[in-house]
Design a protein around this nucleic acid. Structure first.
Lengths: 123, 123
DNA sequence: GTGCCACCTGCCCGTGTGGGCAGGCGGGCG
DNA sequence: CGCCCGCCTGCCCACACGGGCAGGTGGCAC
């Protein structure tokens, strides 16, 4: 059987049999798209929703704190954060302190690591 | 617009724009299947294959440097690192400095973030 | 009006950080 | 032997950081 040029090959990695069967049936006769065969590489994979990275948890951070956190994750000093956001370094430090409290971190380094672990930021 | 009973809702989590567009187009006109709307839960998610974390690149770090990096990622100070590894804080600082050089980081916070991005450590 | 929240600002102080300088040792290799 | 590498150690210095204290404004809800 010849492969139509430009066909997208999809693998099914769905643990729920009912959903897997329904998806297989729905995708079976779509021109330009087909299910992966054994031993073949797929272009994309259908998985259950829980397998995707969790959405950013809120963590109760204010918008400003999120801005500061993003700059922290770039290794920015308080001075640089202040300059970037157009605020005083004292204010930057204030927000850093709030982040440390909310993320239960011992310092900025720990805050960035913890935020990444929690999925609050993506490095 | 009423929802047809039993429609499968699919979310697209494809980083490659070309592939994402093609999949969106292919899936758009399938009866019994539709793409997820904003703020809506999906039944299944289409992702790129091989989304697993890349293997740890070596990055040319010595064993000691790796030990220090792991402690850095816990937010440890040089003093704490020294105590943990049974060395002087000067030596701990020396290794931190080497890490900054090798990871091309501006400081310890940047080193941890960069190491995580590179897959050298896992947070 | 009051209280809460987010954001802003300044100062003080002790500790931490990063970069520089110096030195050393042991092990492996040519 | 000399060289390289990894690891260790000390000192000096300027700057950064974190925690504490104090103050302020504006917006919003009750």
């Amino acid at each position: 059987m010849t492969q139509p040029p430009g066909t997208v090959v999809i693998a099914l990695a769905i643990g729920e049999a009912g959903l897997a069967d329904r998806l297989a049936a729905l995708l079976a006769d779509i021109p330009g798209l087909r299910l992966v065969a054994a031993g073949e590489a797929a272009d994309a994979v259908l998985v259950m929703p829980g397998a995707a990275p969790s959405p950013d948890p809120d963590s109760g951070l204010t918008p400003r704190e999120r801005e500061v956190l993003a700059l922290l994750a770039e290794g920015a000093s308080n001075k640089l954060i202040a300059r970037r956001l157009g605020i005083s370094s004292h204010t930057a430090k204030f927000h850093v302190g709030s982040l440390l409290d909310k993320l239960d971190a011992t310092g900025r380094t720990d805050a960035v690591a913890q935020a990444a672990r929690l999925g609050v930021i993506h490095l």
